[in-house]
Amino acid sequence: MLRHKGTQILLLMMCIISLCATTLGTFLSMYAAMLVFVSSVLLIGCFFVFTRRRYREIENLSNYLRQISAGDYSLDVRDNQEGELSILKNNIYKVTSMLSEQSSLLQQDKSQLTDAISDISHQLKTPLTSMMVMADLLSDDHLRADKRKEFIHNLRIQLERLEWLVSSLLKLSKIDAGTVQFKKDHIVVGMLVQIALEPVLIPMDIKEQTVNINGEDTVSLIGDLNWTAEAIINILKNCIEHTQEGGEISISFSENTLFTEIIIADNGKGISKEDLPYIFKRFYKGKNSNTDSVGIGLAIAHSIISTQNGDIDVQSEKGKGTRFRIKFYKQVI
């Protein structure tokens, strides 16, 4: 306490004032001098007591901050009394609570990152193992020509799958990291649907599926055309995959004062109730998924839509098809 320069100066001034007052008191009487001297000693003593108490509280705050820096956020220093120290304590507690929440979020991010790395490793392991086996088989000089052709074809399929998987993972990582700059263009939904349909027309034609589009030409939304088309494509791929040959996929869209709505539905085999809560979780594969399915397309669609102030939900009944309902809100609500 006495090492503080301000305290030293204040104590010196109080002593000088007390000495001067006592000296002046002697000119009046010895009783006056003694009264001034005793009063000065009491005042200086009170100064010492309250200053020491104040420094003890500051020392407690310093210890509290050291514990916070060590990662202990369990202490509570809130003070309901008046005064600048009480205000400081309450503000420190607010910062501590915020740091505790951030620490908890960081732990969750670390856990999610660990799980994601584990899932990615598992997803990459399967095609890589298959490719290594086929590469070993292709090195056999006595391999028949038809088998060699078959292995090369399978190897190309695995390479395409690996390329798609890595590309999808990069897209997800960019969205999660917030590095994607989504444009805010005026998009005509009819044009968006046509762009999204182009890459899936061949798979639909192979399965002899039909598509019905219903919506007015004036319906529009604000968003990024390319990324939104990516989301719609992934949803359409899911519908095509889970719809039987000769099935039907319908796309309808409308607009009101609050949001623009796009509904994509199929009459396929549907999704079981057990799988519905998890279909937008990355790497999740439902009971009806194909063996080649990775479980990342709907996760990408969900991330793209939600990042653009949108919302997506799904309704499905086993054996009666699935209905995806997408809403792009006109303002944050």
Rank of each mutant, 00 (worst) to 15 (best):
L24P: 00
I235C: 06
Y55F: 08
G25M: 08
P277A: 01
L143I: 15
Q8H: 08
G223Y: 08
S250E: 12
L85D: 04
C15F: 14
G178S: 07
L236C: 06
N91R: 14
D275P: 07
F27N: 01
A32F: 11
L201T: 14
M14F: 14
D79T: 05
L124C: 12
Q194S: 13
L170C: 01
Q331W: 05
M204L: 12
L172M: 15
P127Q: 04
D109K: 12
M34I: 10
L197N: 02
N80L: 07
K94M: 13
E198G: 10
V193P: 07
N234V: 02
C20I: 15
V314W: 04
G246K: 07
I175M: 12
Q209L: 12
T210V: 03
D146S: 09
S29L: 05
R78Q: 13
K94P: 00
H4F: 15
T243H: 06
K285Y: 00
V41R: 04
Y31R: 06
K320H: 08
S118C: 08
E216M: 09
T243E: 00
Y284R: 02
K147I: 06
T307V: 00
M13D: 05
T26M: 12
R156F: 03
L143H: 01
K285H: 01
E101M: 11
Y73H: 09
T291N: 05
S220D: 13
N267F: 01
D313V: 02
G319E: 07
E84S: 15
L65V: 14
K318Y: 04
L221T: 05
I262F: 01
E82K: 14
Y329N: 05
M134L: 06
H186W: 07
S69Q: 09
T51R: 09
S168T: 05
D76T: 02
G25W: 09
K320E: 10
T228D: 08
